[in-house]
């Protein structure tokens, strides 16, 4: 077992485990965001619960490690794959039937996700948890780090941010539609019978998660207009 993670399947196992962890996190994050649609107080209670305390900090570090490991292994695998493909590329290459564009562009989609994530971390994590960790009472927006609902409503009152976030969410949706079934396939939980079912489950899960996020953003924007 010592060298399991140095093998090609072992590296993909790491991608699968971290990927599964990130899908779970996204699901919880989406559900927590949903609270804001119904109650600012409920959302702020969650923000306070996930502030500068040990369990939230440990959770943040584990989550960050998950993202970093997933990204590093994506780079390692992509570089190895480019090397294996050889220096000379086909002069002509057709798209194979039934092969999704997503499956061949997971790294590019991953970069879109990372870019959106950096913006998102600045907008919220930096202005919430980080401000609290640093012991400051106001963030770069001049608000308190625990005024989560106010911060979110302020950001999504700008149409530009709404569009940027929706584009980011589309990137995540595409990434998940391939990532979810691919992760199960990599650990061996697939068969001829389950292939279609797993792909269907991937689309449903991706749509539920991303749809939940997108709806929250759109509803908050509309609520801001009223």
């Amino acid at each position: 077992m010592a060298n399991i993670f140095t093998s090609s399947i072992g590296k993909k196992l790491i991608m699968s485990i971290t990927g599964a962890f990130l899908v779970l996190f996204l699901t919880f994050h989406m559900l927590m965001n949903g609270a804001l649609v119904f109650s600012d107080e409920a959302y702020d209670a969650i923000v306070n619960f996930l502030g500068a305390n040990w369990y939230a900090l440990i959770g943040t570090v584990i989550l960050a490690a998950g993202v970093v490991i997933h990204f590093i292994y994506a780079i390692i695998l992509t570089l190895q794959n480019r090397r294996a493909r050889g220096k000379i590329r086909y002069a002509e290459a057709k798209r194979e039937p039934n092969v999704e564009w997503t499956s061949k562009n997971m790294f590019v989609l991953g970069l879109v996700v990372i870019c959106g994530l950096l913006l998102h971390l600045y907008n919220f994590w930096y202005n919430m948890q980080w401000t609290e960790i640093m012991g400051e009472h106001t963030n770069s927006l001049g608000m308190g780090p625990k005024d989560g609902a106010v911060m979110v409503r302020d950001l999504f009152s700008h149409l530009g941010y709404v569009i940027v976030y929706l584009v980011w969410l589309v990137g995540i949706w595409f990434h998940l539609t391939h990532g979810v079934w691919s992760m199960l396939h990599t650990v061996g939980w697939n068969s001829k019978v389950w292939m279609k079912r797993l792909r269907c489950i991937s689309y449903i899960l991706a749509t539920l998660i991303v749809g939940g996020f997108a709806l929250t953003v759109i509803i908050i924007y509309i609520q801001g207009l009223m």
Partner: peptide, 28 residues
Amino acid sequence: FGNCTNTRACEAECPKAISISHIARLNR
């Protein structure tokens, strides 16, 4: 050889239409 990323292109072009479900078994 490279790492499989489950694109299914191999299955689409295989002259014997071998399914990638065999890859799931191999992984397992």
